[in-house]
Amino acid sequence: MDTKPKSACDTCVHFNAEGLKKLGVNTTNFDFVVALAGNPNTGKSTVFNAITGLRQHTGNWPGKTVTRAEGAFEYNKKKFKMVDLPGTYSLLSTSEDEEVARNFLLFGKPSVTVIVVDASRLERNLNLVLQILEITDRAVLCLNLMDEADRNGIEIDTRSLARELGIPVVASSARFNKGIPELIQTISDLANGKVSCKPHRIKNIPKKIEKAVEKLSDEIKKEYPNLPNSRWIAFRLLEGDRHIMEVLRTGEFV
């Protein structure tokens, strides 16, 4: 494994508070794009607000953010544009509410994807996380709502979680600004290529499907050798996603 996921304590030493500037809506001339994805109601907008200094509406109500919001911050002289995506349970279906999130992750080419999850409901949230890891190889898991998890007596071993997922994991309580500096530091490390990931690949798939996926993804790789997510494209093709077929034809995403 070439990943060196850093635990929260490794990174907090590095965090350079003077280097951070919250830029609000000023999203011009950015160096990197950061996408915020996750299930509904896991605190994405709260993280977004904490980092950009904006006041996106947050609400304890699944499905609150329906369009994407954009903001920006500067860290160590680099400008980051941040996009708060609508919450989704999955990227596999064809329902319209996922469309925005899915298209952005696939075609918006974010430099870093922050996946915000609810620490008390990790298993359910991993459904989406594992899908996103098929799409992108530069992601960080933001294990949010840690205060609630503590209260509920849930303990998470962030180191082995990071090892399993192959991406950095940052524990946070966005509402109380805990873990946000570490998250910013990790985002910056990923964007600047100081940390690299080896994301988890979905394993428990029936043989005949795995074979079909492999065959298809090999063909796709022949055509687009630099594509990191040929497996995901194969999934989508097998699902019959017309949008993906269109894009394959035009070659838009490479």
Partner: peptide, 11 residues
């Protein structure tokens, strides 16, 4: 269709 997928997504 979609309602099946949604149930699967929800776990």
């Amino acid at each position: 269709g979609d309602s099946r997928r949604r149930l699967l997504d929800l776990g």
